[in-house]
Nucleic acid binder design. Structure first.
Length: 232
DNA sequence: GCGACAG
DNA sequence: ATCTTGTCGC
């Protein structure tokens, strides 16, 4: 898929924060997903324990059958330091490169982390959505900002995630009796739709099949058991 | 001021 | 995120 970056990646923390505050004005919180959604892609990155090496993986699934249609992987290094709240700046450059190598443009992107449920309301799911123009949402394993009442233990139960009096996401039970995940919008989708997709994509495990596929592939590539689409 | 802090 | 032993359950 084609992705045109309008500006270079920031290299300092101050520039990164400024970029977030500027780009967050472009986030659209309304459902603009195509109907029907035909393809959905999972995105994840694996890291090396003691080197700046990382592997990004994108896995495109058929939204109906959850069959794998296409994959793309990139092994590279990152310079930006890991800072909570600035996660996108050290993870997204590799992800964007992997997405570029995709033959097809997915209808929907599922991120491993938060979107709106971020201190400045601009987590990596929002950032990736604004950069690509593709509808995105985030499914995170732990809370970053906000409070929630634990949802009922039944799969499909959920409760709002509230930060500063604002609903920024939802705690969603994707499996009976298992810890909830935290869903928030990224771009061109609404929270209800993102929640629906989360339940649809969590068929057997706590996390969406998209995320599980991308997580597994990124680890295999980083370990050298699978060769990447691109190395740089 | 101090601690907490997506992955 | 990554490292790591054992344990519980389908």
């Amino acid at each position: 898929m084609e992705i045109r970056l309008r500006e270079p990646w920031p290299t300092t923390v101050a520039d990164a924060v400024e970029t977030q505050l500027r780009l967050r004005g472009e986030v659209r919180a309304v459902d603009e997903t195509p109907r029907p959604v035909r393809t959905v892609a999972g995105v994840d990155v694996a890291y090396d324990r003691n080197s700046p090496r990382l592997a990004a993986a994108v896995v495109v699934l058929d939204h109906t059958t959850l069959e794998v249609l296409e994959t793309s992987t990139v092994v590279t290094t990152t310079e930006f330091p890991y800072e909570p709240g600035l996660f996108a700046f050290w993870e997204l450059p590799a992800v964007v490169e992997a997405l570029r190598r995709l033959r097809t443009t997915p209808d929907l992107l599922v991120c491993d982390g938060h979107g709106l449920a971020h201190p400045r309301r601009f987590g990596l799911a929002c950032h990736l959505g604004v950069l690509t123009g593709v509808p995105t949402f985030g499914v995170a394993k732990t809370v970053f900002v906000g409070e929630f009442v634990p949802p009922a233990s039944k799969r499909g139960s959920w409760s709002p995630l509230v930060a500063d009096g604002e609903v920024v996401g939802a705690a969603v039970r994707t499996r009976d009796g298992v810890k909830p995940v935290f869903v928030s919008i990224g771009h061109r989708i609404d929270l209800d739709t993102a929640r629906d997709h989360t339940i649809t994509l969590c068929t057997k495990y706590r996390l969406p099949e998209t995320t599980r596929h991308a997580d597994h592939l990124s680890r295999e590539v980083l370990a050298g058991r699978i060769s990447p689409s691109v190395e740089g």
